[in-house]
Design a protein around this nucleic acid. Structure first.
Lengths: 168, 168
DNA sequence: TTGAATTTTCAATATTTATTGAAAATTCAA
DNA sequence: TTGAATTTTCAATAAATATTGAAAATTCAA
């Protein structure tokens, strides 16, 4: 397999994985392209490499910048914007995890906590059962949320090491 | 908030969360409905409660059965099938994690491993850089995969305890 | 300033994914 | 067996999501 074919396969695979996890295909592909690019790329180069429109490229880049997993890179004497990917996988994987937690898990956690409280007083068997179910899911979700937060905010020396020990 | 309103809010919230993580809304809602139902429910009752079609209800139930996070329950003297949810959140959360790992992460891991090998021999600076990038992502993904596997197959006494310690 | 280069926006369109509902298949009590 | 009850399938349709592309806005060198 040629280098170019390898790069392409990586980009395609990454795009497919993103899709399955609710991440826009173009967004995932742009990140993948920047990950396997030695040089910073301009919007035009990205459009060309992935055969996507300017609008799509722009919005995908903006989202990745928002996530903090790619950076702008100024090239002297060139008016265009160039982009590079954060190459440290721990950094960007944790950023994505933290971002999704805040955007998707935390609002759910709030609803669960609210429901947990709302069902607390009910003395019927039905009410108690519902409260129990909600309570357990709320507690679990909260633990998960805390886990992500702690790992994301930890330095390599600390929690990360514990995690690795867990794996090995 | 009435019990019925709480139940409904839980179902809606769960459905929305599922959607954001690439899980079909109906599937997530059927699981939620069964989680907050005291009694086993028939397909007709589920259709009625969620106002979804028979086809949709059937396919959602089948998928949840495949995941192993709901069960069939026979009610004596009734020909209909009834369903109940696995209520132990650790059990079903880990089953979902394991299932998604196998279905979505493992194929990606195979491609990454293949690319890692394919780029190994290249002696150009370009080739070395690509290999390095792929290698790091492959290694990370593998660790993640192993983590999920170990946690999912562990008993409460072992790894789970370590995980909890990590959180607390 | 000016205007060409560049970026952003967003309505229109295309694509993908989910859902319906009725026909076909299956099940099982009588 | 038979046929009514139940489940499953899947082509048609609807809904949600992604993408385009051109106009508008912005930027910046001259």
């Amino acid at each position: 397999m040629s280098l170019e074919a390898s790069r392409q396969k990586f980009i395609d695979t990454w795009g497919a994985l993103g899709t399955e996890w609710g991440i826009n295909k173009s967004v995932a592909q742009v990140q993948a392209l920047l990950l396997v690019s030695e040089q910073p790329l301009s919007t035009d180069e990205i459009m060309e490499a992935l055969t996507i429109s300017r609008g799509n490229a722009n919005m995908s880049l903006r989202q990745l910048l928002d996530y903090g997993i790619i950076y702008k890179k100024v090239i002297a004497g060139d008016r265009k914007e160039y982009f590079v990917a954060e190459k440290d996988i721990w950094k960007w994987a944790l950023k994505i995890a933290l971002m999704r937690k805040q955007k998707e898990i935390d609002p759910v956690l709030n609803v669960l906590t609210e429901l947990e409280a709302a069902t607390k007083k009910d003395k019927t068997a039905e009410g108690k059962a519902l409260h129990q179910t909600v309570h357990e899911i709320q507690a679990f979700t909260e633990q998960l949320s805390t886990l992500v937060e702690r790992v994301a905010s930890s330095t390599r020396g600390e929690l990360l090491l514990k995690l690795l020990k867990l794996v090995m």
